[in-house]
């Protein structure tokens, strides 16, 4: 299925959760803010939130420094 990931059309296998997407991207769930179709998903729901066809997904990986 196709989704838009950080503005780019991306092909994904079906029935993937947010946690699995982050594993594929090799990003630790503690360091990230994930938004699907304009809603920020809370970390506690990463395991049971599935990404659907045509979803707009934004993954912001935070880096340290300030």
């Amino acid at each position: 299925m196709k989704i838009t990931l950080n503005g780019k059309i991306t092909e994904l296998e079906k029935n993937i959760t947010v946690s699995e997407l982050l594993q594929n991207l090799k990003i630790h769930s503690k360091l990230v803010v994930v938004e699907i179709n304009g809603d920020i998903i809370q970390k506690d729901y990463f395991d049971n939130t599935f990404i659907k066809e045509n979803d707009k997904v934004e993954v912001v990986r935070f880096v340290g420094g300030g």
Binding site: K30, I40, I41, Q42, K43, R61, F62, V63, G64, G65
Partner: peptide, 17 residues
Amino acid sequence: AFDKAENKAMLISNASK
């Protein structure tokens, strides 16, 4: 305006909720 990445992500996702 935190320093640590983990704290940044924590504040932004919790505050937005």
